[in-house]
Design a protein around this nucleic acid. Structure first.
Lengths: 146, 146
DNA sequence: GCTTGACCTAGAGTGAACTCTAGATCGTAG
DNA sequence: CTACGATCTAGAGTTCACTCTAGGTCAAGC
């Protein structure tokens, strides 16, 4: 139970077996996965946890090359903690940036959707949608509150 | 001033001129941009606002094909507001999902970074980093609070 | 022993979203 | 009139992160 096959790890992490082999090839894992006598991969609990961390990193937009860099630092052992910290902080900063951009987008989309909802429930007779420069277009392009 | 060149629009939207032409080719703009007598694009204020909206959509992960769909609905004129609303709501839902996933990642990264920061300021003599199964590795793979 | 399904490697293919190139044209400044 | 920088089109190239293929190996059940 500390020795999972690639298929089991695929189920547990949500990555395809192809992706798991790809991650290993690309050096995203700390060292390489151990093998059975027949040459099949046997993943340890640590491996699986690490892969889950990689999935997290990827989900938040961290590029593969940077995860590899981090994995290399971890593989190198103690002594480079400052560098790991820097990497983490950099990713944290980027993520915060990204989050605020996305929140802005959400605000815009919500504003537009709410206006549409209002219009749809009010029926097509609404005066908003007639006239020379239809407010429809203003609504489309103009509503950018943030 | 209601008639900008592609270079000016590039400056104002942050998209490259290549990307602007690409967006038009791909049908992301409502109709097509008007042209000068010599065949150069002349962007109206509406065009620019619309492009900014497209940038927002792209920033929040909306695929190009879906933006095209939305643009087609807008180009088709009134009568399909429900469908536009559905598209917007779908994007809103996906965005909320994405936001919560990213917030989770941020939590994980912060937790790891804070532990590292603690270690780094405490100096390498910390007992955390010695022993048979170094806590270093536990820290790497195990810290997944969310 | 045979079948079957999960696994192996190396390497080619895919889709998305640009990005760049080549070769031509436009239009303004000198 | 000429030079030059911005623009034009069509289409090829790039990057990223996988995903798939071909041709073979391993191991459990019948």
């Amino acid at each position: 139970m500390d020795e999972l096959t690639i298929g089991q790890v695929s189920e547990r992490t949500g990555l395809s077996v192809h992706a798991l082999r790809y991650y290993e090839r690309e050096g995203l894992l700390v060292g390489s996965v151990s093998r059975s006598s027949g040459g099949r991969r046997r993943y340890s609990t640590f491996d699986v946890d690490w892969i889950r961390l990689c999935v997290r990193f990827r989900e938040c937009g961290m590029p593969v090359t940077e995860i590899r860099h981090y994995a290399e630092l971890v593989a190198a052992g103690t002594g480079n903690e400052e560098e790991r910290l820097q990497l983490l902080r950099a990713q944290e900063a980027r993520l915060k940036h990204e989050l605020s951009r996305m929140t802005e987008c959400l605000t815009v989309i919500r504003a537009k959707a709410d206006l549409y909802a209002q219009h749809v429930t009010a029926g097509t007779a609404g005066s908003l949608w007639t006239g020379e420069t239809p407010a429809c277009l203003a609504l489309e392009a103009g509503v950018q509150p943030v």
